[in-house]
Nucleic acid binder design. Structure first.
Length: 594
DNA sequence: ACGTTAATAT
DNA sequence: CATATTAACG
């Protein structure tokens, strides 16, 4: 029923998109409304976040997308974002005059599809519908069958279960025993007990989103399987399932954090101010979610918890294992900047890590609900099955940006097994590169089926998804405009300085674009790290996620480039990293409080 | 029972 | 090979 469906898709889809605009500042709201109207969207405005939430709760199908200011008196925009991510699956775009990367990170990690810096330009609004399409696609694919089950509770409705739709299900019936001979009976039977082997849980994007949302709410420190399970409220899902996913998620966060720190180093070295990387990530949608959606990368997944999660998490993660203490050297710097962002898709993402995105409904499926056992998802493929977190994130976010292009593996030293060593470096990269746009994104690798199709398409623009991991990939594509990520990125870079641009490019490509001219760094030096870094990208599927981290990174300052370079190079071995520190600041926002 | 972590299965 | 499940430990 949503508008778009009604009109069949093709058409002039974006026209009439139902947008709920929320901003406590009447002027900004009016401006926003005007711009949105110019885009031919159906706009509803409210100056209160609480009112917005109320409207959304009253009729979940009344809007296609929410665009909200971050700073509002009655309710923090991030909180609104989080609620929306958990209760309804609508894409949320954050809006703020403050382009602080930390905030951007937070938005993305919490599931925002996009983060726009205030004076908003109409060009940025013209493409917002892609987030709607993306999400929809995802869910659509799995129609959920509704058979009756009841599913879950309240708000959300989904339980794990539904599977994809596929057909499925029943297939089995038929078989009945034809002959019996076998005594074996094999089974089938079912019933009960025992034996039924439970279908494997597939962490669909949605599921991941929920997971991320729950983690964010709890705060990483308190995010333990049991609690997460309770918050997710998905039936059929067990504590063990959550524990397993949490395990993976934590690994993901670690990766991210390390990557972040690297970035930080780079940034510091270069003197970049905010890291360009961050700017805007894409989206996550959903909530975040760790959703990992994506592995594929959409970049942005981000962890929503972002701070919460992130920082805390990272801290936690690191510390234990690592003995490394991260301390910040440069205190002066105050805040660190987050660098990355991860997220791919969005939320559901922390999820959103993980676009999970795209949608497919099928995605969901996963769970075993008892009910259906579903048919196995297998077919459905939709799920993220294989995708990795990164993909999920990307999907979720949609655009996402993954920030971390690099992995810093070294950063945390040896202690951590994960990172240590080269492993990280080599990860695979999917790469995407070659292709142009969409494809890139989709590299099939992960998502095949449904995802790919779905996602990619959107308008053609979706490239974002690069699953590849990397941002790089996506960026390259340049055209990516769709999400804007790129474009934004570009913009931001511009502001900073030329240098940055070049640098970025370099990063982006992985290699050197820098060469062109830049002078600043020697390419060689740069490249090394870059290449190394870039490799891993794939990985993080979570990114998506939603949860992303924001770790901050920091700034540290190396006295000289050489130092930096050296450090990077060596980091593998030793501890190296002493400088970084994460900050936990933001957490409060989401905190538990909810 | 619960959370982690590591091993094992798919 | 990555993800999910199962076992094992504190």
């Amino acid at each position: 029923m949503t508008v778009e469906e009604i009109r069949g898709d093709g058409d002039n889809f974006p026209v009439g998109l139902r947008v709920l605009a929320v901003d406590d500042d009447p002027i900004c709201l009016k401006l926003l409304e005007t711009l949105l109207r110019k885009c031919q969207y159906h706009v509803t405005t409210t100056s209160q976040a609480r009112m917005a939430l109320k409207m959304l709760r009253e009729n979940k199908d009344r809007f296609d997308l929410v665009i909200s200011d971050v700073h509002m008196p009655d309710m923090d925009g991030f909180k609104l974002l989080e609620y929306v991510g958990l209760e309804m699956d609508l894409p949320v775009i954050m809006l703020s005059a403050n382009g602080d990367p930390k905030l951007v990170m937070k938005g993305v990690t919490h599931g925002a599809c996009d983060y726009l810096v205030k004076p908003v330009r109409i060009e940025e609004l013209r493409n917002i519908w892609q987030h709607v399409l993306r999400r929809k696609k995802c869910d659509n694919k799995n129609p959920k069958k509704s058979s009756g089950q009841v599913k879950s509770h309240q708000a959300n409705g989904e339980g794990l279960g539904s599977p994809t739709g596929n057909a499925d299900q029943n297939g089995k019936f038929n078989r009945k025993r034809k002959e019996d001979e076998d005594e074996s009976e094999d089974n089938e039977n079912d019933e009960d007990p025992s034996t039924q082997k439970k279908p494997r849980v597939v962490w669909s994007i949605e599921l991941h989103r929920k997971f991320v949302g729950a983690v964010n709410q709890l705060g990483i420190e308190k995010a333990v399987p049991k609690r997460i399970l309770d918050l997710m409220n998905v039936d059929g899902l067990t504590r063990e399932n959550v524990a397993s996913h949490l395990q993976k998620y934590r690994l993901y966060l670690k990766r991210i954090s390390s990557a972040a720190s690297q970035q930080a180093h780079m940034a510091a070295a270069f003197g970049v101010k905010d890291s360009p990387f961050m700017h805007h990530m894409g989206s996550l949608d959903g909530l975040g979610d760790f959703r990992t959606l994506s592995s594929a990368r959409l970049p942005n997944v981000v962890l929503s918890p972002y701070t919460t999660t992130t920082n805390a998490m990272l801290g936690r993660l690191n510390s234990p294992s690592a003995n490394v203490s991260l301390r910040n050297l440069s205190p002066s710097v105050g805040p660190l900047q987050p660098s990355q962002a991860q997220n791919l898709s969005s939320s559901i993402a922390s999820l959103n890590k993980m676009n999970f995105g795209t949608q497919n409904t099928s995605l969901f499926q996963g769970i075993p609900s008892h009910l259906e056992q579903n048919a196995t998802n297998n077919n459905s493929k939709g799920i993220l099955g294989t995708s990795n977190f990164n993909a999920i994130d990307e999907l979720l976010n949609g655009a996402s940006f993954n920030p971390e292009p690099f992995d810093a593996s070294g950063a945390f030293g040896s202690s951590n097994p994960l990172l240590s060593s080269t492993e990280s470096f080599h990860s695979q990269l999917p790469l995407v590169n070659g292709s142009r746009r969409n494809d890139a994104s989709l590299n099939g690798a992960y998502l095949n089926t449904d995802f790919s199709s779905g996602v990619g398409l959107v308008g053609g623009e979706v490239h974002n998804m690069n699953y590849g991991n990397n941002i790089f990939g996506s960026l390259n594509s340049s055209n990516i405009s769709g999400n804007g990520i790129v474009s934004r990125l570009g913009r931001s870079l511009g502001q900073n300085n030329a240098i940055s641009n070049q640098r970025m490019d370099g990063f982006v490509n992985g290699r050197s674009s820098v060469s062109g001219g830049s002078n600043l760094l020697q390419q060689n030096e740069i490249e090394k790290p870059v290449n190394e870094l870039r490799q891993r990208s794939n990985e993080d599927s979570f990114l998506l996620e939603e949860t992303r981290l924001n770790a901050g990174f920091v700034p540290q300052s190396y006295d000289s480039l050489d130092e930096l370079v050296n450090a990077m190079i060596k980091r593998e071995q030793d501890e190296t990293v002493s400088n970084c520190e994460f900050q936990f600041d933001d957490d409060y926002a989401f905190g538990n409080g909810i």
